[in-house]
Design a binder for these strands. Structure first.
Lengths: 346, 346
DNA sequence: TTTTTTTACGCAAACGTTCCCGATAACGAT
DNA sequence: ATCGTTATCGGGAACGTTTGCGTAAAAAAA
């Protein structure tokens, strides 16, 4: 199966012109006569000529494409973020090549190498939950490949980063539970090394401590695969509930962890919020259709994708190496619903 | 910002060999001495040589990438399907380039042209809800570009297609409602031209007619944007309810339409299934967390993505033009929950 | 008319790779 | 000594495009 597109050479041959003349005519060079230009343009239009971007990439040493490395796209947060990425990238003439790490360090490394060898002009990255070493990014970044991290970032690399106000979000969520009368508040979160985990954990802890409640490590459970595996969330929840200090509420840090916990709770035939209250990080659109409606922290996923892409393209198209990198912090949205109803009011 | 990878020429210069010798040594040609081979391989390893895929693409006239055209990825069905696509593509050495039409015919055309000009080796397509003319695909397909359609297909083009058993799924869903005692069953569906719309509508209609119930066009409402716009789903639902023959149940045909309808019902403060019963097409993972739990038809999204990609790669890598194209029909899953409870039992 | 300038175009190299053709040397066979 | 083989490597074209440089003809200036 082959597909023979018309080239600049074909046009030249058909019109009795050299390839250089055709090339110049197509890009409207001043040194081509109006007549020849018109002739070339018309013929090109007629045969539906499209410049070969691969040849161009080879010559210009750029591919007009950016690589995206996320753990998975079948996740509300990431699919919305990718939406934001595309909304900018396409308008600026870039292709988006997506790869999923499936929360595996190895796959992340392979994907990154693959994308780099495919000559992407830049990388948009959200780390996998297994990643504790980022040499594979450092190496490429030092060689001059622009990289922007979003959501799950690392402070071991200095580059642009786009994150949500995770500390504040977790703080507010926990505070909300405290204010509603809950005393033993647990936390089910992602892998310990992830930036989002640490920030959210800190917010959770500080909200407890600042309100005279103890911070109990037994009430913090980690899902090292970020909730991608249903069983691990179930185990985390069971573990949490088995505690001698049985919690009366908890905060979940992540889309899959939130839904996984709710499913596990349902399987245990517990009632929310009567048996246990829940506040969850999720970008699901149907949180208010759940039983009970779910109090959520919603991340500005689309906007994060947009901003990260804008920063990346800015670096890619910059003439000089960038000196000062910034970390943009975007605000999340806290939406109170029924899964965290006040104990007093009931 | 630039990024200077080492080339075969650099290796040749460093080792005092010609590029052809290096090239051959790298690919283990028999006509290179074991000694030279070893030398080249070691040096290449040392300087971390990676072949430039762009140069290769130019030479081989293939890009090892496949383009995906869907309406949007922030949709359970499509994100799961893309997951399936990637699972195959990456293993076979193909990149996946995703573009979204956002249910717009124009954007679909632009994206397809863009992908084609980027020399993708093949296309995986699910039509937009606005698309009634597929000349943009026909033209490329006739020129030899392999295309496989999935989910939303067209019978105006002969190529591989991968679909779900839409007729049967809608038939069964409707039959289920009939069997549970519902008499006036509505249908909220996508744009009329879409294959999935027509197939599901036929299944819905036949299930009614075969069970002695009238088929009333007033009870069928279309969302021309496939439910992407919240207001249109709301309008469709209101329209449906305003009917003189107020329906006691309905079937929704699509992820966004299902969730949109449920939201609208909630806003109207109607109770499901008491006021109205619902069965919905959706690939959401939290249908059993809804209030009430939602009876759903779940499409084999991941599998559809896998199969479509396998077929596409088969066409791409085929030596001869493919003569006989096939249409694979995959089975959906019908999951009964509470949103369609039997009228009698209650 | 001659010289200079302008106009309009072609040639060829370059981007990184593969591969068809040769080319050279060593060596055994004739 | 001559020839055919074999092993090992290099030259150069090709993929499609852009672009610096050269140059012919035409126009302008002398």
């Amino acid at each position: 199966m082959k597909f023979e597109p018309v080239t600049i050479k074909d046009i030249g041959k058909a019109l009795g012109l050299s390839t250089s003349t055709v090339s110049r005519a197509l890009r409207g060079s001043y040194e081509i006569s109006a007549e020849t230009k018109k002739q070339v343009l018309e013929y090109a239009e007629k045969v539906n000529y499209r410049p070969n971007p691969i040849a161009l990439s080879l010559k210009e040493r750029r591919s007009s494409s950016i690589g995206v490395v996320v753990c998975e796209i079948a996740n509300n947060f990431f699919s919305q973020a990718i939406n934001g990425i595309e909304s900018i990238a396409y308008n600026r003439g870039y292709h988006v090549i997506i790869s999923q790490s499936h929360e595996s360090y190895e796959r992340e490394v392979v994907n990154v190498q693959h994308l780099a060898s495919r000559s992407v002009d830049g990388l948009l990255v959200s780390l996998s939950s297994e990643t504790t070493n980022i040499d594979h990014f450092l190496e490429l970044h030092e060689k001059g490949l622009p990289i922007v991290f979003f959501d799950r970032v690392s402070n071991e690399i200095i580059t642009h980063k786009v994150i949500a106000d995770n500390y504040k979000a977790a703080f507010d969520a926990t505070l909300h539970l405290v204010n509603n009368g809950y005393k033993k508040i647990g936390h089910i979160t992602s892998a310990p090394f992830l930036s989002i985990t640490q920030e959210r954990l800190a917010g959770y802890r500080d909200a407890l401590l600042e309100n005279g409640l103890p911070y109990n490590e037994q009430l913090v459970k980690y899902c090292s695969h970020g909730g991608m595996i249903v069983e691990e969330v179930e185990a985390a929840l069971n573990n949490l509930l088995k505690n001698k200090q049985k919690p009366d509420a908890f905060v979940t840090a992540g889309d899959r962890i939130t839904t996984g916990s709710l499913t596990a709770i349902k399987n245990l035939q517990l009632k929310v919020p009567d048996d246990i209250a829940v506040v969850g990080f999720t970008n699901s659109n149907i949180a208010d259709l759940l039983d009970p409606t779910l109090t959520t922290i919603r991340l500005p996923a689309f906007e994060m994708g947009r901003v990260a892409t804008e920063l990346l393209i800015q670096v890619i198209e910059s003439k000089r190496p960038i000196a000062d990198f910034e970390t943009r912090v975007l605000q999340s949205e806290f939406i109170v619903r029924n899964s965290s109803s006040s104990l007093v009011a009931q």
